[in-house]
């Protein structure tokens, strides 16, 4: 190796330290290998990048263009209208109402979903025998199609004879008319969304299993109660996972569509109260009932910007509250 370094040293003009000079051929080999590795990496991610560019970036860009036009599906033409679609959104009271419904749902659903998922994950984390079986069973609801779930919840949430109200009646509580009384419509959709909490539960279970046991042992020796251990060890140690779930679930909640549409807007023969008119549903109606694609695209972008802002705020706040293992925070 030293021989190969000689010509460089002989030049005598280099200010580089010898160590660097003697390492260069090895570095060159490493650099070639690294380049090959990088190329292989790019090749592997190319399909995803291509898909992202074609089906997301290009589509979103076109959607942005559409939002400034009056797109006519019958002639396939788009007449520029400036900010007219955004002006219509500002004037439409249903936009504000549907956004209000959506925020209300998100504020209720996200904390509840995470709390329930954490409770279930904690239960599963404590199971030693038959853990795989219980994990599978707890995950099964997530596999149920939303349509089937909606049908089940139509029965469970029945105000007269539903299982939920029957359960409440054991404690002397007369349950509400969940799916009919407008004030109870959103809470009923939140309850239905809890059915699919298993996705968050699995992520939290993985996080719980990564918390070092010795922390709990040390805390026990110091006399910390289980509750104290939970709040002083578990929550900080899984805070990055909780933060991730808050962000992802908030984004999903702000786009809520399936449950509300299936329960209330499939047809015009049942209930379709304004209380269940979420922004995603209203967007769908603008696009595919009224065929106002320019307006619908403007709505989509409005929601996108709202989600972007909320996520930005969450990230800013999260930096202060979340513990990242391996970082100084």
């Amino acid at each position: 190796m030293a021989v190969t370094a000689a010509p460089t040293a002989a030049a005598g003009t280099s200010a580089e330290p010898p160590a660097t000079r003697v390492g260069r051929p090895a570095g060159r080999r490493r650099s070639v290998a690294a380049r090959r590795e990088a190329l292989a990496g790019y090749a592997f991610i190319l399909p995803w990048v291509a898909g992202f560019l074609i089906f997301t970036v290009v589509s979103m860009s076109w959607s942005a263009v559409l939002s400034f036009t009056n797109y006519d599906l019958s002639t396939n033409t788009a007449e520029p209208v400036g900010f007219e679609n955004y002006r219509l959104l500002a004037e439409d009271p249903k936009v504000l109402m549907s956004l209000g419904n959506t925020f209300f749902y998100a504020l209720l659903a996200v904390p509840l979903e995470i709390a329930v998922a954490l409770a279930l994950a904690s239960l599963l984390n404590g199971v030693r025998r038959g853990a795989g079986f219980f994990r599978t069973v707890f995950y099964l609801p997530k596999m149920t199609p939303t349509v089937a779930t909606a049908s089940i919840f139509l029965l469970l949430l029945n105000g007269n004879t539903g299982a939920i109200n029957s359960f409440l009646s054991w404690f002397g509580i007369q349950g509400p008319q969940w799916l009919v009384d407008p004030p109870w419509v959103k809470p009923s959709i939140v309850i239905m969304s809890l059915w699919g909490v298993a996705g968050s539960m699995v992520i939290l279970l993985a996080a719980l299993q990564n918390v070092p046991r010795e922390l709990y042992e040390a805390a026990s020796v110091d006399g910390a109660s289980k509750l104290r251990q939970f709040f002083s060890i578990t929550v900080p140690m899984i805070s990055s996972t909780l933060f991730f779930l808050v962000i992802v679930n908030t984004i999903a909640a702000l786009q809520v569509f399936d449950q509300a549409y299936l329960l209330f807007f499939r047809d015009n023969n049942g209930n379709n109260p304004d209380a269940a008119l979420f922004f995603g549903v209203y967007l769908y109606q603008a696009a595919f009932q009224q065929f106002n694609f320019g307006l619908a695209a403007a709505m989509a972008w409005l929601l996108f910007v709202i989600i972007l802002v909320i996520t930005g705020i969450q990230l800013k706040l999260g930096d202060r509250l979340v513990y990242y293992e391996g970082s100084r925070q």
Partner: peptide, 25 residues
């Protein structure tokens, strides 16, 4: 990806079909 939701279905169809007019109008 999901945010722009339903409107993208049409946008994608327009893009994929290569029609819809490169220039508005």
């Amino acid at each position: 990806i999901r945010t722009v939701g339903a409107a993208l279905a049409v946008a994608t169809a327009l893009v994929a079909s290569g029609c819809g007019g490169a220039s508005a109008g």
